[in-house]
Design a binder for these strands. Structure first.
Length: 127
DNA sequence: CGAGTGACCCTCA
DNA sequence: TTGAGGGCCACTC
């Protein structure tokens, strides 16, 4: 059952991000159960309302927005106590870790410890 | 039903 | 560190 739409699930993950913390599209997508669906996270933020969209940043903690939206997001985050490091956010201090997300904890290299799911379709036509 | 788009991510050089 | 390329997935026209 649980015919939950992907957006609802993503929205739920976004709502789990507490104030003063931030997350990335990829992290939200993974926490929602859709690894690689980072783009859908962005669309969900656009379609859904009432979500802390300003707490969602791009990879590396950089704001991928443009124009006034980017400025607003930055202001909102700073207002919540998020520190910015130049144009990027200091994820090291505010990157939220999802409770359900079991990413095998990155050791130290920060890389994913092997593809839990053999993405066979990840073939590269070498050109 | 097909093609294009998008508040993106990851990997390699 | 920065830059470029390829891939993923849902929604819209």
């Amino acid at each position: 059952m649980t015919e939950i739409s992907m957006r609802d699930r993503i929205a739920a993950a976004i709502r789990k991000v507490p104030r003063g913390h931030v997350s990335t599209y990829g992290a939200i997508a993974r926490a929602a159960g859709y690894p690689g669906a980072a783009r859908q996270v962005a669309q969900t933020l656009h379609s859904s309302v009432g979500l802390p969209w300003h707490r969602i940043l791009g990879a590396g903690g950089e704001i991928k927005l443009r124009g006034d939206s980017a400025m607003e997001q930055r202001l909102r985050l700073e207002f919540e106590g998020v520190k910015f490091r130049g144009r990027k956010v200091n994820m090291r201090l505010h990157e939220f870790n999802f409770p359900r997300a079991r990413k095998t904890e990155t050791s130290k290299t920060g890389r994913r410890s092997g593809p839990a799911k053999p993405r066979a379709a990840r073939r590269k036509p070498r050109r």
